[in-house]
Design a protein around this nucleic acid. Structure first.
Lengths: 218, 218
DNA sequence: CACCCCCCAGGTATAAATACCTAATACAAA
DNA sequence: TTTGTATTAGGTATTTATACCTGGGGGGTG
């Protein structure tokens, strides 16, 4: 089966690094480097013009950083696979880039094979993270994610349903309407929930819901 | 370069599934299946005896589930690469298995190549997650991890103070008393806060507070 | 069967929150 | 100086929430 080559754009503010990466990618058969940019604005502009399949971008760049550029490109050309290629394995940039819409995250210390693998993977719309970043990611997850506490199990499905609706700013009347119940029934559930979690008002229900994982941050 | 074959152990309570997987793995050159287990206890015991390089295990199994078995094996034989092979792409089992020490997570719907790839990857001590799970993982991260919010800056200290008190279940009257203000003043702040965050009620204020990081989970 | 728990729903009453107003003070920036 | 914003505070009215009470129906279990 014939595979058309993957068209790649490089963005980094260091000329030498771009050169090295360009040479490296030129050696890979089905990859074609179609452009370079030394800042985020140029990256966005050239991406709009040339529609690369894959972008390899640094984070720290003048005029517009890689995060803002990624966000912009993810919005305007959502089919573009964006891979972050940066030196540091820090929590915040990883999360910001993920949030901005990057599909891959590879450290600059990566070897040639890994970069090639990242490009191949992301070009199929699959996420790719290098080992270090995956480790970081799992670390972040285990650090920030609280497993549903046993208390969770104390709630019936109905109760959890109502808790989530409460968190979404629905009043008892609205919840009753949407669940085809009486307003009094919803109020009854609400009271039971408050008793269970020891809350004095919906405020307590909501804080409990967030802290316990019944509701999520996003 | 000569590569010694990867010694794999299979754990699943379904005989047919073990068979199918066994046959599949037998077709891969450098993989050698050295044993099977149909429950977690047996998995741990046989792992202690035979020290496989890689374990492919289901989660739901009698006597001891895959999570407990993984935890045990990660503690007693930390060099073992454990890959979860399960049917469902749910948040909780993923996190539990990661926490327990699994390095890979592949859905049973995966094709042969993907399972082979997972084994190869994990045998190099690199984590491997199938696409769906990676997506879930990033979803979990972006859902639970809060970026330092810019919105935070939009609130005056007074407003943030009041937001935190609201989250702690204080009523306007109580807040007014504790801050030596009029109840009406607190209500005024509350209204301004609701306007700013686009909330319809305190529920909206609290969810905003959690999501933006003005209030914390733990 | 009796018992318990969940879900449902109603009454009555008070407290709290919200939606509209208005307006004075203070302090910093344009 | 003027402008803006934060903070303070009040009035009036309606809607919601909460605290008490009551009861029925269904499903599972000892």
């Amino acid at each position: 089966m014939f595979k058309r080559s993957i068209r790649v754009m490089i963005a980094d503010d260091h000329h030498l690094f771009r050169n090295g990466l360009h040479d490296l990618l030129d050696q890979i058969r089905n990859i074609q480097v179609i452009g370079e940019a030394d800042n985020g604005q140029e990256l966005v502009r050239r991406t709009m013009e040339t529609s690369p399949d894959i972008i390899l971008t640094d984070i720290h760049m003048p005029l517009m950083d890689g995060i803002a550029a990624t966000r912009e490109i993810a919005r305007r050309k959502p089919d573009t696979g964006i891979i972050v290629l940066t030196a540091f394995n820090k929590e915040e940039p990883i999360l910001r880039m993920l949030d901005a819409g990057a599909l891959g995250y590879v450290l600059k210390s990566a070897d040639n094979e890994e970069i090639a693998e990242a490009i191949q993977t992301v070009s199929q719309r699959k996420p790719y993270f290098c080992r270090e970043v995956t480790e970081k990611l799992t670390e972040i997850v285990s650090k920030n994610y609280q497993l549903p506490p046993d208390a969770d199990l104390c709630f019936s499905e109905r109760e959890k349903e109502i808790i989530r609706l409460i968190c979404r700013e629905f009043t008892s009347k609205e919840i009753a309407y949407s669940l085809n119940l009486s307003k009094r029934t919803v109020e009854g559930h609400r009271t039971r929930i408050m008793d269970k979690v020891g809350a004095k008002s919906i405020a307590g229900i909501i804080t409990y819901a967030f802290r316990s994982g019944i509701c999520y941050r996003k």
